[in-house]
Structures are given as C-alpha cells and as structure tokens.
C-alpha cells in the first residue's frame, strides 16, 4: 500500500463532489456569462453574437445627451457607496456578533444549542416582511418615535426611516447570523485551560482577549466577515425599502441591466468588475491581521 497514493485518493474523494457540483452548475454557466460581457446587447434581452467592448467602456465613459464621449463616474460612485456600506455593515455585525457568539459558546451544551437555534429562527421568515417590521419601528410615528414622544424625550418625531442609518440597521439585521455562527463554531472549541494558564501568568482580561482569544478565533471571524461583507454588497431590499431607493446600489444596478434596461452585456461586465473588486478586497483582508494564525497552522 502506498500511503501517499491512498492519501491522494482520499483527498480526491472528499473534495471532488462539492467542487464538481459547483463547477458544473456554476463555473460553466458563469463562463458563458463572462463571454456575454464581450457581446452586443439584444434590445429584448440576451445578446447578439458581435464582439464589442462597449460594456466595459460604458463602465467608465458615456455618451452625453449631445453624443460626446465623456468620463462618467456614476458607476464608480455606486460601487464605492456599496463598498462603504458593506464595510460598515461588517464592522457593526462583528461588534455585536463577536460578544454574542462568545457568550453563547460559554453556556452549558444544552442551553448553547438552544440559543444557537434561536439565533437563526427569525430568519426562517421572509426578508421582505422582516424589513416591513423595521419600517413600522422606524417610521415617523412608529414604535421608537412613539415611545420617545410618550416619555417626553422629544417633542417632534425624529427622522429615522429613509436614512443611511436605517439602511445600516436593515443590513445588520439581515446578515448578523452569518457572523455569529462561524464565530460560535470557533469559540466553542476554545480551550479554557489556555486562558487559565495565561491568567496564572498574570495576564489581564485585555491581554487574554488580544493574545489568546482573538488569534484562536480568527478563522471564525474571517469566515463570518466574508459571509457578511460579500452578500451585503449585493443587497437591495434594505437600501430600497429602508433607504428610500434614492441611490442605486450594486445589487439593484446589476439587476436593472437584466430587467428593464435589457443590457445583459453591461450587467455581466458590471458583475465581473464586482467579482474582481471582491477578490481584491478579500486578498487585503486575508493578508491582513489574520495572516499570522493561518501561517501558523499551515506550518504546524
């Protein structure tokens, strides 16, 4: 028996089902879409088989109403805005999600399992009506304003709905379980004897957190960060319903191209730009603070 060969076979058996499924049903179709980006748009949706770079040009330049080709920052603005929003969503999710995941993981097994279920149950309902609930809470004579008015804290309602804050709340609400669960999965395996040992060596709470807990749970934080950041880039229900839909986000922009604007090539090109931007952002993220832990593991 050749152990190396056996090892390779095992590896292949383990990884190929998932990779193959995604490859066949995702990578191949997406390659077709990538080709679309280089073709002409069919006015009724779809493409015509003529090579053109129009879609990529359109991303940076436009013909103004007088037919001159000028630089156009509209799409870059939309991308920048979405990235900023996704970034703040991720940070907020992390600030709320980490302590929660940590606290839950420190409970006795049975309680822990129940709490972790309770984290996800709200998300079995539909996103649209969950967002409707937030409208009710945030609007001018909604729950929050009525409470504050009733207590006499304010004398006229605060504008909460249709603001950036409202969008942020909506996004955090949508994506928070995606950070709590991966962090929980890593905190749960944290060896408390390590903390005990460090404590004996007079480490304070802060040191425990920064020297032991955070490095050891970094894989969960990274995983959760990715699971929140990328989907919130493409979100459009919260921006449209809670933000008033006055500004386009990447999600609605790309959606629009496949719907009423019927410009599939530009939709594909915009998606390619998004994917490239996400990859760059992920590289920066992965090569940042988390790198040390990752390397440590691979070396070990």
């Amino acid at each position: 028996m050749e152990p190396a060969k056996r090892e390779a076979t095992k590896r292949w058996l383990g990884i190929s089902p998932a990779v193959l499924v995604i490859f066949i049903f995702m990578v191949i179709p997406i390659c077709i879409m990538a080709v679309y980006a280089f073709l002409e748009a069919n006015p009724y949706g779809g493409v015509r088989p003529h090579f053109t770079l129009d879609a990529f040009i359109q991303f940076f330049f436009e013909y103004d109403f007088d037919d001159n080709l000028v630089f156009n920052s509209a799409y870059l603005n939309i991308y920048w805005r979405s990235f900023v929003l996704a970034f703040f969503t991720t940070v907020l999710c992390l600030l709320i999600g980490f302590p929660t995941a940590y606290y839950i993981a420190m409970q006795p097994t049975n309680k822990k399992n129940m709490l972790i279920f309770l984290v996800t149950i709200p998300f079995w309902t539909n996103l649209l009506i969950r967002t409707f609930s937030w409208i009710l809470i945030l609007r001018d004579y909604g729950v929050i304003n009525n409470i504050l008015l009733g207590m006499g804290v304010i004398d006229k309602p605060l504008t909460l709905l249709y603001t950036n804050g409202a969008v942020l709340i909506g996004l955090v609400y949508t994506y928070i379980p995606f950070i709590v669960l991966p962090i929980y999965a890593t905190v749960e395996k944290l060896d408390l004897r390590l903390l005990e040992a460090a404590h004996d060596l007079y480490a304070n709470r802060r040191q425990l957190m920064s020297k032991i807990i955070l490095p050891l749970t970094a894989p969960g934080i990274i995983a959760g960060g990715i699971l929140v950041f990328i989907p919130s880039l493409g979100a459009f229900i919260a921006p449209n319903l809670l933000g008033g839909g006055k500004k386009l986000m990447i999600g609605s922009l790309i959606q629009l191209q496949f719907a009423s604007s019927r410009n599939w090539p530009f939709g594909s090109a915009a998606a390619l730009f998004l994917m490239a931007a996400v990859l760059i952002a992920m590289m920066i993220y992965l090569l940042g603070p988390a790198r040390k832990t990752d390397l440590g593991e691979n070396a070990g």
Partner: peptide
C-alpha cells in the same frame, strides 16, 4: 420601446440615482 429609448431611459435612471 425601441433600443434607443431603452438606452436613454437607462441613462436617465442611472443619473438620477447615481
């Protein structure tokens, strides 16, 4: 609508909400 007007609609909408 014909292609040209769809493009103009798209331009107006994107500008409006950029």
């Amino acid at each position: 609508c014909p292609e040209k007007s769809i493009k103009l609609y798209d331009k107006v909408w994107t500008k409006l909400k950029q």
